[in-house]
Nucleic acid binder design. Structure first.
Lengths: 223, 223
DNA sequence: CTTGACACAGAACGTATGTTCGTGTATTAT
DNA sequence: ATAATACACGAACATACGTTCTGTGTCAAG
């Protein structure tokens, strides 16, 4: 007998969480009243109310013994960003769609730690996910079996972006540099010795994300 | 008995600074009274006194607008490893020898921050350096112009290691998988479609380091 | 319509917090 | 010896802080 469908994160939840994360990264956690002032909540009890919910969602931690003792739960430190590995990527496999909700649910799945200093300013926000390359099908993108590709979730791209695309007509996932030309899209392999693929604009083409970084671990340790 | 040193850090300075650093890493900065309790200073004015000195020494920062707004100025992180970028690497260039001394001298040159969690246990020690790939000569190693290669300084390699070698006979630097065979060394490109190079054991071959990681930043240069 | 959970505001209250001031003692320079 | 300085304790005080209580309005299910 649920009275009202429990909405997950509202805009205010997000803004409060963002503010706490921001302050956490600066090293100075905010007080209840500072949070309220930031997000436009005039009452301290309302902030407590939201903080309680965020705590129950497992997104923040509080220590009732101290004032200003609030911090985001996610493992991300001030210097690191933990990017979730959503799954494998291979030529024959469609890319798993990143569920923005799922990122918050306590799915303690695999992830890669990336130094924030390596990411451009604009990517420091959320929306990043990682895929682990399976097989040798991405060789023309200079990407090997086992490499970790970090992407930003997006549905469109600008010329020159390296994007992960799903080509329904070919049942194929591929990583290419994206160029929009007059009547077609040109998907250019990173390897300059290889030829581009041309996709007519009438053909379907799903951009799943923009590649932000590629990490290759050379595991010299014998497993 | 305690000798009064005119200036500099006394034991209490150190303990206060350590406590601030510890709390900073935990995300919960301490209050004046908590600091006093921790280091055995009974008076809040004494803590203020020391904090003022530490601020003047440039070791901590405070924001008088907020409570608990104290943090160490230096950025030390136990999650990150800063790997110095010693220079470019290109086919025609010999690799700069990493000077272990130079890494410690306050040469605030370029560096990459790497999450320790991405490095294998054995590599967490020192001896790592990074090179920035210049040109397309490493394409057969699946490495692009602009990629950052992180190496561990070593003079020998095991079979299967990816190594950076200098071939004096060819005046060439290259990154290849290393295999020792009966009478020769086989240098295998990472790209499986390309053929290996064979070096007779009589020929000179200088192993400069073992590749631990490759990082490719796709600078979409947004904004 | 009634009910009850949800969303929000305001105020009250006890404690926490940082600053300032007064006092005292040991060390050092002159 | 005297003065200046560094070090130390405690109290006082205004404000900051988090919790809790009361009250209001909304919305959907029964």
């Amino acid at each position: 007998m649920m009275v009202r469908t429990r909405k997950g994160m509202t805009d205010r939840h997000h803004r409060i969480l963002d503010f706490i994360i921001q302050r956490y990264e600066e090293g100075f956690p905010p007080s209840i009243r500072e949070i309220g002032e930031e997000v436009g909540v005039t009452s301290t009890s309302m902030v407590t109310y939201y903080l309680k919910q965020l705590t129950e969602m497992g997104l923040i931690e509080r220590d009732p013994k101290f004032s200003r003792a609030v911090r985001p739960t996610h493992i991300n430190s001030k210097d690191l960003l933990r990017v979730p590995i959503l799954g494998p990527i291979a030529a024959g496999l469609p890319i798993l769609l990143p569920d923005p909700q799922a990122a918050f649910i306590g799915d303690e799945i695999n992830g890669v730690d990336v130094a924030r200093s390596l990411l451009p300013e604009s990517e420091k926000a959320r929306g990043l996910f990682a895929l682990k390359v399976q097989g040798d099908s991405m060789i023309d993108a200079m990407i090997n079996n086992g490499d970790i590709v970090i992407l930003k979730s997006t549905n469109d791209a600008r010329n020159g972006d390296m994007v992960a695309v799903w080509l329904p007509a070919r049942d194929e996932t591929t990583l290419k540099f994206f160029f929009k030309e007059k009547d077609r899209y040109r998907l250019q392999p990173a390897n300059p010795t290889m030829d581009p693929i041309y996709i007519e604009k009438s053909e379907p083409l799903e951009i799943k994300g923009k590649v932000v970084m590629v990490i290759r671990k050379l595991d010299t340790t014998v497993v």
